[in-house]
Each structure stands twice: as C-alpha cells, then as structure tokens.
C-alpha cells in the first residue's frame, strides 16, 4: 500500500528543504507520496528540479499565505537517492 508522508520544511532556506526531502525519500518506496511544506519560495524550483534528476514525479504544487506546498510521488528509478 502506498504511503502518504508529510515533511515540514518551514523556516528552512534552500537547499535544506531539498536535503530533507532527499533524505526522507530514502525511507519511502516507489509509489509513495510525500507532501513538502516550506516557506522559502525557492522550493518551487528546487524540489521539482531535484525530482527531475532523481526520477520522481511532482503531482501538485501550490502557494498559500507565504507557504508553498509540493506533492511528489516517489519514482522507481531512485536515481540520486542512494
């Protein structure tokens, strides 16, 4: 069964949200979903870029009140997450 996890990356400046995402994805399985919430708008560029090179899929991203949310689905290539 796929798992839905959340990561609170608020008040962290990039690249820390990417590092936390990368490290959390290591403990997940292909098909699992991770939702990252952050306050650095940079995550809207960096997490999708990291997903592209690592073989994960961005499902959704949106901006709220000074907060940004990205949902990603863990891919099975697991590139760059070893």
């Amino acid at each position: 069964m796929s798992v839905l996890k959340q990561l609170d990356a608020r008040n962290l400046l990039c690249p820390l949200p990417v590092i936390r995402t990368q490290n959390m994805v290591k403990s997940l399985h292909p098909g699992d979903t991770l939702e990252v919430v952050g306050t650095d708008p940079g995550i809207l560029n960096d997490i999708p870029a990291w997903c592209r090179i690592s073989g994960h899929e961005v499902l959704e991203q949106h901006s709220g009140d000074n907060e940004y949310v990205i949902s990603l689905k863990v891919g099975d290539r697991l590139r760059g997450t070893s």
Binding site: L13, C14, G42, D46, A49, G80
Partner: peptide
C-alpha cells in the same frame, strides 16, 4: 532572494541546475 531588490534574479540552485544540464543524479550532503 529574501531581499526584495533581488527578487527578479533567477531563483535556482545552481548545483541542481548543473545536474540537470548533465542529466546526472546529484547527492546533496
């Protein structure tokens, strides 16, 4: 980019950008 005056500058992580150019995985440690 925290500072408003730099808002128009590209907001990207250059190491990730390099990895994309080279289509290679990047381990950020």
């Amino acid at each position: 980019a925290i500072r408003k005056k730099d808002k128009d500058k590209l907001k990207r992580n250059n190491a990730l950008w390099v990895a994309e150019q080279l289509d290679m995985p990047l381990h950020i440690v």
